[in-house]
Design a protein around this nucleic acid. Structure first.
Lengths: 165, 165
DNA sequence: AGGCAATTGTTTGCCTCCAAACTATCTTAT
DNA sequence: ATAAGATAGTTTGGAGGCAAACAATTGCCT
């Protein structure tokens, strides 16, 4: 898309004209849509968290998974995927990495040879601790923003996730 | 609210038919994190919207872009990327597609040969209308969930996006 | 038993996105 | 005027995600 006619070569210009300026973009109907703001907020939150935990073995995507395994020893990948809100196929490489790093171990499930149960290793508990420190600091900022409406705020988020499932 | 026994529940999957069943997974600390619920809600909202507008030329990612161009004729890609909360490089292929579909045209900007201004075609306005119908129906559900707290809810989302930028 | 449907986890293919590197152009300083 | 820096847009590379297709196993039904 670099095919614009030579056109004019006015040099006066001053970026005076309009709506292309940074701040004064007209959002129109968009400004009233919950979905739009939801995406911007989630995006900002994710980036902020990601930028803090820079290590290769402390990826933000691992936090929820480690947390859930820690709180539910013996959990299966499928239960994990539902709780973490991720597709089961998304979990496969994550669990492979977590196992390679020795943060997680899987044991066969008596009574069902298709599946296996997951639990944290001691090392995994350590890493979870580090991630939790990041997460806590991160969520403290969000808590401040939400203020005393935090409970209401989370309640609405929960209902959105439930009712649109 | 989120305080359950961390015990080892060696339950062997009774797993009734309910697919919406989140299951008896213990969320632990995760249940109190705003970031976690934010991601789940955004994810659910996005999927729900996507599943409704199934056409190839009505992708959900286009909605915000078409809307912003429509409300800000002559806007540049960079201003657009900021308003839409996407990286400028993300916009390049989107704008290429929108131009190929003849929903958008770009005109050279007098005074700056690096850039160009975007605006909708008549066809683009039509498609925007269709997308807007979907979006309105979608957001009506979200509005219902938020109820009379919608304004507060959006305010918090906005602040999250701003302060974590 | 035997057969058929459902479930588990993996593989494969595709899409969206960001960040860094790059080119072209504009601006500012000297 | 020229050099140095800032800015606009594109390209490239990699991460992360979903969904459909698949194999293995389990459960159900007759």
């Amino acid at each position: 898309m670099t095919e614009h006619e030579p056109g004019y070569k006015t040099r006066t210009a001053r970026q005076s004209a309009g709506p292309s300026e940074t701040g004064d973009v007209n959002l129109g109907l968009l400004g009233g849509y919950i979905g739009y703001h939801l995406r911007l907020a989630q995006n900002a939150s994710f980036r902020a968290f990601q930028s803090k935990s820079g290590r290769a073995d402390l990826r933000p995507g691992w936090f929820a998974v480690l947390n859930l395994i820690g709180d539910n020893p013996g959990i299966t990948p499928i239960a994990l995927s539902r709780a973490a809100g991720r597709d089961k196929s998304t979990l496969t490489p994550i669990l492979r990495d977590l196992t390679e790093y020795d943060y997680v171990v899987s044991k066969p499930r008596p009574g069902d040879r298709r599946s296996y149960g997951l639990s944290l290793t001691e090392l995994g508990r350590e890493r979870l601790g580090e991630l939790a420190a990041h997460a806590k600091a991160h969520d403290r900022v969000l808590d401040e923003i939400a203020g005393k409406q935090k409970e209401d705020f989370i309640r609405i988020l929960k209902r959105i996730a439930e009712e649109l499932a």
